[in-house]
């Protein structure tokens, strides 16, 4: 006789700050909680050198280390973290049970929290694809050391862009910050640090239009003024892109409504339009996308899911 497959109480897709906090709260709610992570736990903060705005770390904390701490705490409270399992499809059966599929296995769950997060956005300009890994990068902590005494540009004006520009000055001789507007969006304290840094030069009201190279690596960047002041070309060795993120929403498409920008529509509590389906973190329609808000929303979604499981 075939054995009945296990039905997980709470399945969480994505092991970043939102998913791991949801895992912590789910496990503490004494329901069988499984977190599916396609790689290793931690999420996007893995690529962050120093997280200075997550409370209770007065000196700041390394991003990869913080990710591991999130995972350790969820595990210690009984959450089961399944690494290298990428959920590619979710369906809700007529009996209300969710079927989650990975490449080689399927899982059943009573409630699901989607916390798949987001990925750094690309500029989609000429030369970007060709020179990825040869001068074009999305991870300053990974690649800064290859740019000792070189010239690089950071594209973007938000917190990530300006923080990473500051970090890059530890290695590079000069760092351009290129931003399409005439003022930055980053938090005041981070902006000030960049303004005070003699290695940083601002090229505001410019957008990159082409990454130039010599066939094997990046040699320059073509810019166009957003104030009709024409084109210019700067010589450099590397381009670091921090122009926002795109939600990882593939498994939610067709399952629950998304916003025009592709974020999962959720209530304050993390509920979606679908009973038993919840969502939290960067994949949802929240304005502030920070580790602390992802963790908070993960807790809310788990709380709502526990309530759902009790009353199911």
């Amino acid at each position: 006789m075939e054995t009945m497959p296990e039905i997980i109480d709470l399945a969480i897709v994505g092991g970043g700050p939102a998913g791991l906090t949801a895992g912590l709260y789910g496990a503490r709610g004494a329901v069988r909680t499984v977190v599916f992570e396609r790689a290793m736990p931690g999420g996007q903060i893995i690529t962050t050198d120093w997280v200075e705005n997550y409370p209770a770390f007065p000196q700041g904390v390394n991003g990869a280390e913080l990710g591991q701490l999130f995972a350790d705490q969820a595990t210690a409270q009984g959450a089961d973290i399944k690494m290298f399992v990428e959920i590619t499809h979710i369906e809700r059966r007529s009996d209300g049970i969710f079927v989650l599929e990975s490449a080689d296995e399927s899982f059943l769950a009573r409630a699901v929290i989607i916390a798949t997060g987001s990925v750094p956005r690309k500029l989609h300009i000429a030369g970007e694809e060709e020179y990825t890994g040869r001068g074009v990068s999305w991870c300053a902590t990974c690649d800064a050391a290859f740019y000792r005494e070189k010239i690089v540009a950071v594209v973007g004006g938000g917190d990530s862009a300006i923080e990473e520009a500051n970090y890059l000055t530890k290695f590079a001789r000069k760092v351009y910050i290129i931003h399409r507007r005439d003022s930055l969006r980053a938090t005041a304290v981070i902006q000030q640090r960049a303004f005070d840094n003699p290695k940083i030069e601002f090229l505001l009201s410019y957008v990159p239009t082409e990454i130039l190279g010599n066939g094997s690596k990046v040699t320059g960047l073509k810019l166009e003024s957003t104030k009709a002041e024409g084109e210019r070309v700067i010589e450099l060795d590397g381009v670091f892109e921090f122009v926002g993120v795109d939600p990882i929403n593939e498994i939610a498409q067709g399952l629950t409504p998304l916003t025009d920008s592709g974020y999962i529509e959720t209530s304050q509590n993390g509920t979606t339009k679908i009973p038993g389906l919840f969502s939290a973190g960067d994949v949802t329609n929240t304005t502030l996308k920070q580790v602390v808000t992802a963790a908070g929303k993960g807790a809310s979604a788990a709380f709502a899911a526990l309530h759902y499981l009790e009353n199911e």
């Binding site: 990869a64 990710g67 290298f84 991870c139 902590t141 990974c142």
Partner: peptide, 10 residues
């Protein structure tokens, strides 16, 4: 010092 590298090791 590269987080994604450490992620790929296992």
């Amino acid at each position: 010092w590269c987080g994604p590298c450490r992620m790929m090791e296992p």
